[in-house]
Design a protein around this nucleic acid. Structure first.
Length: 355
DNA sequence: GAGACGTGGTT
DNA sequence: TAACCAAGTCT
């Protein structure tokens, strides 16, 4: 009969491994250093929500260079934050980032709350992020449960209840193995383990420091945990985007409504996105249609955006709110990826058919 | 509880 | 190719 790892042994084994193998990441204090800046921890945690380390790294560097403190970030213009976030996705995070920075600057004297409840009350900070910042930045014991921890814990204890129903049991198990000391290291060690060894597919059990503690390791298929229900297929949608260019090198950009998809971001004027979008151009002009639509996959649907190009006079005024943006500085407009790609194909079309 | 909410990399 | 997945939050 195998003796399952005690909670203490699991934490000890994991932290010993972490002491040697911790990933060096830009938002992590160097080994042996206790210098954790809550601002940098918080910023990294927001950026890392549903986003890979590789994608976050350049954005973290850019943000911390431009806005080194929460006060600096709080003083930034909305448009500058949104443009700097462009391409990282989940733009509600950028809106909440600014709201949170301003709340900390104005209501907390620029000092982040040091406990989970205080953090949880801030915009964009949910249960995971509050626990992570409390543990990593403030050394508080907190039960930090993200998708990595869910997977590691489900395997350690062979929890076979499907997600999301398994969440309470997983959380309770995570609570049991969370140590009273080094809570921040423990949380990051669990996430490192999930990201590098206890991966969703083909976990590297052979080099796992917890394999002797792991119930799933003793089954035929450790990767079968956690059990998940199948997701439904994404619908396909169609849409039209309108590239309106002036001979003096400007394009007409709008800003999308603050809420909803790509909310608050600059964009090309576009139709609704549906099975049968309205294809009426925003203004009378000689429109050319780019032959290949821009394909883009969002979280809950995929889109084929047909791009239409028109060259209009310098004096023309498209309908509605918007601004003429200089083509030479298009990168600074901070277009989300869909519209950046639409701009690419539109400009290629303009090149080809220039008068 | 379930759906909205981006993007890019991997399988 | 299509599906799956990533340090989740909000409604």
């Amino acid at each position: 009969m195998h003796v399952e790892g005690t909670p203490q042994k699991i934490a000890e084994d994991l932290l010993a491994h972490y002491d040697v193998h911790a990933r060096r990441l830009p938002w992590r204090a160097p080994p042996g250093s206790n210098a954790t800046d809550p601002y940098r921890v918080w910023l990294s945690e927001i950026m890392l929500q549903q986003t890979t380390v590789a994608a976050v790294a350049p954005y973290f560097a850019k943000f911390t260079a431009r806005w080194p403190t929460v006060q600096a970030l709080a003083a930034a213009e909305d448009a500058d934050i949104m443009a700097a976030w462009a391409g990282l996705g989940y733009y509600a995070r950028a809106r909440n980032l600014l709201a949170c920075a301003r709340a900390v600057a104005q209501q907390h004297d620029g000092i982040f709350p040091g406990d989970e409840d205080g953090l949880r009350a801030l915009p964009g900070v949910g249960a995971y992020t509050a626990a992570a910042v409390a543990a990593i930045a403030f050394g508080r014991r907190a039960v930090v449960v993200d998708a990595n921890v869910e997977r590691v814990v489900a395997r350690l204890f062979a929890i076979d209840t499907p997600l999301p129903a398994a969440r309470p049991a997983i959380r309770a198990a995570a609570d049991r193995i969370t140590p009273d000391v080094r809570a921040g290291d423990f949380a990051q060690a669990m996430m490192d383990l999930g990201a590098t060894i206890c991966t969703p597919r083909n976990p590297a059990c052979g080099i796992c420091p917890l394999r002797q503690d792991c119930a799933a390791f003793r089954t035929a298929d450790p990767a079968a945990f956690p059990v998940k229900v199948a997701k439904k297929a994404k619908p396909h949608r169609l849409g039209h985007g309108w590239w309106i260019e002036r001979p003096d090198g400007h394009v007409w950009l709008i800003r999308r409504p603050a809420k909803g998809l790509l909310g608050g971001m600059r964009a090309l004027p576009s139709s609704d996105w549906s099975d049968a979008p309205t294809a009426a151009p925003p203004m009378a002009a000689e429109w050319k249609t780019v032959s290949q639509p821009v394909g883009h996959v969002f979280t809950h649907f995929s889109l084929a955006l047909t791009v239409h190009v028109a060259h209009v006079a310098n004096e023309s005024i498209p309908p509605g709110e918007g601004e003429w943006w200089p083509l030479a500085r298009l990168e600074e407009a901070g277009l989300p990826t869909l519209f950046r790609r639409a701009a690419d194909v539109a400009m290629k079309e303009s090149e080809t058919h220039a008068p």
